[in-house]
Design a protein around this nucleic acid. Structure first.
Lengths: 197, 197, 197, 197
DNA sequence: GATGAATGAGTTTTCATTCAT
DNA sequence: AATGAATGAAAACTCATTCAT
């Protein structure tokens, strides 16, 4: 087996093991047993248990950075267009999150409360996320389809919280949820709230 | 020092230590140093490191269970009443969360990814939370101030996500945020969304 | 047992173990077995196997630095006085070396070819030794009882070599050698060489 | 590349690696990297890391055994002849030592404190050396150019110590020392000591 | 009750050696 | 002959928990 293939296999095994037991409860022994190789083989490919975890986290952050929903720049927008833009954006994100839900789960459930380095990485990750959401909302404001009296930074945080919760509740479930339905509900809530009964 | 006082002191020291370094990176030595007692003393009051952590988590869950915003049951409501009800509810919750933010932080940042038992406890906690939010929204629907076409369970999850995010972003900050302003923004978003620019 | 007594006991056990098997072949297990304590106890007193070795080496170097043969400063000297001075000096050194021969043996047989730090320490040690010998010979030259045409630095090195060899051959033996006889021979050789048969 | 050439190349690489880092700190990986071959190749030529080291030590001991300064057997000698004989002897030895100083350094700095086998080899080596020096001094005594009242065995040890020290101090230096000057000083010291100022 | 030295099972990590290609 | 990925026994080190004082 080639060096790269073995490395990939070990990463996959590590991910499975970490998801099963969490970072601390997972021993290198568990990872290599999962991969079906000897203890030493692990250390041919990674410096330490921490290192393999770090690679997985980096990979997840990269997955996130690669999600770039594109949207058109119409001069005149209607509220319906705004909903379409949000829907596209959410759809893209949730699709990617579903695709990489195992990595994502590791990030959300394990990379929290770990050694120094991760805190900074995660902070940067959230800042980037905030940036993107902020940009989208400001864009909608500019085009007159979002209210001007909202605090964009505040709302950006709310949106992040919403997507995180959705991810935990629906994407970490066993079977694939109806993403379209999720997105519709999401957009409806974000555009109109619950009021107006 | 009385047995209870010593126990309380150790709990406080443990909380401080866990918040500083996280569950795994915190050693019993750190806790007793923080409390200024000898190592053996710790075991006179708690069975294990795990046990003291468990008490802290239980205490936090209890804090949450004790938060019971009461609201009146008018037969006829206006949208303004709905906003008031939500505001009261959020205000109560955020006030309690701020009050116990250190315990809460432990819950959010450390009780994740720990041994089996906690996962179940947390799940129950979220179920309870969901129940309450669900009840509030259904109440508003019943009284005609919330739309009927929303998926109440889905929205309940969104609301939980929102509050979690707000908690992490604003309540874990160093100085006390303007809770009234936070609540106003929250309610506005929940009632009307961002649309209607 | 007090902390200090335990530490001393472990140092003694480590010295015995290192002398028996050498640094690398000696495992922490051997040291603690020698001391009759558990593995963890070792680490209560020393950070690592390397650390305990380092303490022993430092202790040996200190023993050497503490050897300070004093000699009078007569204005007029005879060759006989010179011999007496050298004899006193050698006697003092060999006495100290015999006293601490186990530590010394560790230094000569193990601290050579070990990690970075020791090389520098040893170099400093030899420089100091050279300094002392050089000073003694120059003193004898000044007082007219040693020839002026010798290279004092060179001879200082020879003397160091001589003492090292004597140490290895006679002091590391099982029973105490006749130090007086050794010293007499040493002085005779240093003063007159082997010539003049 | 022929089998012998490859073996020689590996020996050379091993020597370089051992001198750089010492026996234990040098890994087979370092040796094969130095030689520019794969790890497995090493084991085609040597049974173990220990074996290659052993070959190098044997080779050094052989170098020493091959040093056989010859000297004439004049019936009547003068002190000057004795000096010439000693000078010739030292010159031959130091020349050979300089020639093979890298191997020699390995012997002096690494073959100490290693597994059982080496201790015995080294002991035999020193015994042989002692024999030779002893023989030379006794020869000079017999011919009336060395004093009769010296302990020949003792002096032989001193001479060995002197040569060892000279070797460490001057031959392991970067540039070639003036061997003739060294030898002159050596002989002067051995024949006359430092006395007679 | 309090102390803190002692314990030892449990983990990570290393690296000489093997062997299928 | 050469390769280099794989092996796994062997070691160092950690730290929650115990217990004699």
């Amino acid at each position: 087996m080639s060096k790269d293939a073995r490395r990939e296999q070990l990463l996959e095994a590590a991910l499975a093991a970490f998801l099963r037991g969490g970072y601390h409860a997972t021993h290198v022994e568990d990872i290599v047993k999962e991969a079906g190789v000897a203890r030493g083989t692990f250390y041919l490919h990674f410096d330490s248990k921490h290192a393999v975890f770090s690679v997985l986290v980096d990979r997840m952050l990269q997955v996130f950075l690669d999600v770039r929903p594109e949207f058109p720049e119409p001069d005149v927008m209607k509220s319906k267009d705004a909903a379409a833009i949000l829907a596209h954006s959410y759809r893209t994100i949730l699709e990617a999150f579903w695709q990489h839900r195992r990595l994502l789960r590791l990030l959300l459930e394990e990379a929290v409360g770990l050694e120094k380095g991760f805190a900074k990485k995660l902070e940067a990750h959230y800042r980037e996320w905030h940036e993107r959401v902020h940009h989208t909302i400001a864009y909608l404001q500019d085009r007159g389809v979002a209210r001007k009296d909202i605090d964009v930074h505040f709302v950006a945080e709310l949106v992040i919280g919403i997507v995180e919760r959705i991810t935990r509740t629906y994407l970490f479930a066993r079977k694939k949820p109806d993403l379209d339905a999720l997105v519709d509900q999401l957009v409806a809530f974000e555009m109109r709230g619950i009021g107006g009964g």
